[in-house]
Nucleic acid binder design. Structure first.
Lengths: 165, 165
DNA sequence: AACCTCTATGTGATTTTATAACATTTAATG
DNA sequence: CATTAAATGTTATAAAATCACATAGAGGTT
């Protein structure tokens, strides 16, 4: 992947089953390296997010966890998702009250998202931290940025094309 | 206000009662110009957000509306807030499921927010649309941005100072 | 004024999202 | 093993948002 396109894992096609396998392997390695425990529920929750490859609400994840034989109460899903987001293996999309698997599990990053308002597809891009003018405004007012939520809402290429036809 | 600080209405002191009055007058003028109806509930909801000068949940707004003699069911607040956000007189803070009055009612803008995780104070800054690298990523993937949510979470100057003492 | 229409408001019920509290189990460590 | 800490399961509840439908007002037309 060239540098110019490295910042967006997006609305394009790809070999999905390989992408899932690779991502899990990568997360597994990271957990091992950091002494984190990728327990069965957590692993399954990640798998579910990767499989679907879109933003899933906590209750959708919960349904899939239950089907897989795990507990069926909300905290089961919320705890697994907390773990994943806390360690950067997944992200919470505030706009949708939903979660996506991280598309860049290897890099240390501040994620930005493009959310299609028609099909709810979500693409993740990278953002240089303290991006431009907001960083400047923060500095000017003495505000310390710890986390940055950037979510663009709009229409993805596929939906735009459909609308035109 | 000089250009250099014009982009942040922030964590600083100001003459609040004048700020409320001015903001309402400004919104009133805009509504009149555009043929929008700033009805009593809507006006009161805006007033409430301006008075508090921080992010308020819909139910907090609802409480204040009820106290002022308006209906007491959730849709009352949500509808007023919908009106205000739809026309840019207020903004929704996704991170907090809450609403703030717009700090720049006169300009056509894409707002960005700085949210203190300790005291929940919210400052609004302006952002050039299609900000930097996200705009580039969107363009590269064919995504059309319609709305941009930018919310920085961190610690405001006042809370940072308190933590140091 | 009487009528129509569209928008806005009021209200009850429900859905969706998220957390609190506490018991139980499992893993890691001495 | 025994002890401790982390993780899971479950009940209950809180918080946020929407649905559906009835009523009321504002604007325009004759």
């Amino acid at each position: 992947m060239s540098q110019s396109e490295a910042t967006s894992v997006g609305f394009d096609q790809h070999d999905h089953s390989a992408c899932v396998t690779d991502a899990i392997a990568s997360v597994e390695a990271k957990c091992c390296a950091k002494g984190l425990r990728l327990t069965p529920v957590r692993r399954k929750a990640l798998e579910v997010l990767l499989q679907e490859h879109r933003a899933l609400g906590a209750y959708a994840v919960l349904d899939l966890l239950r089907e897989a034989g795990f507990g069926s109460q909300p905290p089961v899903a919320y705890r697994a998702l907390d773990f994943l987001t806390k360690h950067g293996f997944a992200h919470r999309i505030e706009r949708l009250n939903a979660f996506v698997a991280c598309a860049h599990p290897d890099e240390n990053h501040s994620p930005a998202f493009m959310i299609c308002r028609l099909c709810d597809a979500v693409a993740e891009a990278q953002l240089p931290l303290a991006e431009g003018s907001l960083g400047a405004a923060a500095q000017a007012s003495g505000f310390e940025i710890e986390r940055l939520v950037v979510e663009a809402e709009g229409v993805c290429p596929a939906c735009a094309e459909q609308a035109n036809s």
